[in-house]
């Protein structure tokens, strides 16, 4: 019968897939690199392709980039060992480190040690420029948006600075703030007038100013936050065991050694928006941990 032959071919194909797959599973161990999703895909692809090949050249290992598009998913993937080296934000990095004791903070960008967020407002909203943090109270009763709910610069630290002057997130219009999902979206929505004010990462704001995406007749900065630490590289505790003694240190050195003198390395740094990577330490993130605990983002 015709159908039995067809079935035979199918089962043959099916079994052969099993064999093909078995062949690929015993490749040498890979270093899996991940990042929280905060840039456009084309840029992420270029960035991590360059970085992967640079790391694999310098360290003589296979490097694979896995894009994870959700903040808590990236944290979880790190906890469960699916990602070896991750470019985390301040909050997600702390969350990941608390969930995976022994994880090592490797490096941060030069800009991350002195990171800032900017509060912006639509000009039609008549929100004045603020000189003093306590004047943030003018935002009460306004339509206000944060970025992504797990973002350090788009939510956690700004919310902290708001709470310092007694503004709760229920004080905005509609008794709740918006969560635009990203820094760029916050800018677009405040500029359009959908929200009267919002807050975003200063670096993204400046990049948009430089790309002439900001219409200064519609939106302006009303306040720059105090500085805090943000993004950093976090590595699994067991890398030395898997890749050989001293690997974590070698990896850190490679990251710290990226310099503008090499063409590829300078491209990588440029895509990261950094001049160089600098050493980073757990204790720098204690403040963020405290803030996150206070705001309920860490239990």
């Amino acid at each position: 019968m015709n159908s039995s032959r067809r079935n035979f071919i199918f089962s043959f194909l099916f079994i052969s897939t099993l064999f093909v797959s078995n062949g690929t599973t015993w490749a040498r161990p890979k270093l899996i690199v991940g990042a929280i999703p905060d840039q456009n895909p084309e840029r992420l692809n270029r960035l991590y392709r360059l970085l992967s090949s640079e790391l694999s050249n310098e360290l003589d290992i296979t490097v694979k980039y896995v894009p994870v598009t959700n903040y808590p998913a990236a944290v979880t993937a790190f906890r469960t060992g699916g990602l070896d080296l991750v470019w985390f934000g301040g909050l997600t990095g702390v969350q990941a480190r608390l969930q995976k004791p022994g994880a090592k903070v490797l490096a941060q960008r030069d800009v991350d040690a002195n990171f800032q967020s900017v509060f912006i407002a639509n000009l039609n909203s008549n929100i004045p420029v603020i000189k003093n943090q306590s004047e943030l109270r003018v935002l009460k009763g306004k339509r206000f948006t944060f970025g992504s709910e797990s973002s350090t610069s788009g939510r956690l630290m700004p919310q902290h600075f708001l709470q310092q002057v007694d503004i709760k997130i229920t004080d905005f219009k509609g008794r709740r703030p918006g969560f635009s999902g990203s820094h760029d979206a916050t800018l677009a929505l405040v500029q359009s007038g959908a929200y009267e004010a919002g807050v975003l990462n200063k670096q993204v704001w400046e990049a948009n100013v430089n790309r002439k995406k900001v219409n200064s007749s519609k939106v302006r900065v009303i306040w720059e936050t105090p500085i805090y630490v943000d993004y950093h590289w976090l590595a699994q505790p067991d890398l030395d065991k898997r890749f050989g003694n001293g690997f974590t240190e070698k990896l850190t050195k490679t990251l710290l050694g990226l310099s503008k003198s090499s063409i590829t390395q300078s491209k990588i740094l440029k895509l990261f928006g950094a001049n160089s990577f600098i050493p980073a330490f757990e204790h720098q993130y204690k403040d963020i941990e405290n803030v996150a605990r206070k705001l309920g983002k860490i239990k």
Binding site: N40, P41, D184, A185
Partner: peptide, 21 residues
């Protein structure tokens, strides 16, 4: 699928949406 690090067209859509590209 992007949530699970598998990539996929959803990753492209989500990231381009975030960056308004």
């Amino acid at each position: 699928l992007g949530v699970f690090g598998m990539g996929g067209i959803g990753t492209e859509l989500q990231l381009t949406l975030q960056s308004l590209e």
